[in-house]
Design a protein around this nucleic acid. Structure first.
Lengths: 171, 171
DNA sequence: TGGATTACGAAAACTGTTTTCATTTTCGGC
DNA sequence: GCCGAAAATGAAAACAGTTTTCGTAATCCA
């Protein structure tokens, strides 16, 4: 009913598809293909979850240490513009980037203990929002729903916390 | 059913009550009462809506021009700590502050045209979230739901836009 | 009322992000 | 394959919002 998506293994075919889609986008816009951008998107699409700029840059630097913040930021903007990636902000002041998952839209539960971010989708929720908007003479373009709280599975949660999960920390 | 709260007139009694509550809080914490803080909270509680720091400072300066950003920020932190005020961030990078309305919790619809922020509350929505969390073995502490879109009442919307509404602008 | 404590205000520092600018790279046309 | 216009890069500076610092001033309990 409410499939919380656990991070799947990164599907190499899907990644290739996205790289191709981005190449397309670049071409359509009359922009140029560069080694740096390729490195950045290849790295990004092979990471899972909700990636901050710093996390991405760290990974990217392992491939090409000369790439800096500016290029990463610029490439992420292009990725967002191309609709291949979404920008999210949870309460910690960092922008995080999320390669589209299979579920077109989804919401988030954020554990304030271990930092894990769970994704979920529920059609009744969407429908209810629609009807509330309707009642108020309002047209929804997009929405954002975040549930902040704690995992009830304390073992798993503590394990993640110990591992030093990287995600939207306590606000 | 879904009462979108339009800004009510500021209830002077309620304001006094909040001022008293804040004084209490200050005392309990062993802090000191100062003219500047009094000015700031008196001003804040008499403003309606979702106030940014700059908006508040502008108002405050009309009473005492020597008050600066630092004191406003510090006072707002105290207000949040005292639970008399909530901090919110819509997509425009500014923190906004909201004196508790009568409705304990509520969500927001943000018009990207005119900037108006509507508040609403719906128990079915709350219940649905609870049950989703339950299903996922997750305990909600708090949540945030924002619907971004546009007013359908175009006349009112344009009027507000012309007036240069101050609110979470386009992201 | 003295004196420890807290608050103030201006300015500097900080953080995440964007822009600038001089240099390098890409790529369509020859 | 090479030219040259256009775009991209990287380092550093700029920026915006917010926080901290630091010397001075106000508060308030004994």
């Amino acid at each position: 009913m409410v499939p919380v998506k656990k991070y799947r293994e990164v599907d190499e075919n899907l990644v290739r598809q996205k790289e191709a889609a981005f190449a397309d986008f670049i071409q359509r816009k009359g922009l140029k293909t560069t080694r740096q951008r390729n490195t950045i998107i290849a790295t990004f699409f092979r990471l899972r979850g909700h990636i901050s700029v710093e996390e991405l840059l760290n990974q990217v630097k392992q491939v090409n240490p000369r790439i800096g913040y500016a290029t990463v930021y610029r490439t992420l903007h292009l990725l967002v513009e191309s609709s291949l990636v979404e920008e999210r902000r949870f309460g910690d002041g960092l922008a995080r980037y999320e390669g589209h998952s299979d579920v077109e839209h989804h919401d988030h539960m954020i554990c304030l203990e271990c930092g894990e971010i769970f994704e979920f989708f529920n059609p009744r929720l969407e429908a209810l929002q629609e009807s509330l908007a309707e009642e108020n003479n309002f047209q929804i373009f997009r929405h954002r729903l975040e549930l902040y709280g704690a995992c009830k599975d304390k073992e798993a949660c503590n394990r993640r916390k110990a591992r030093g999960n990287t995600a939207a920390g306590a606000e």
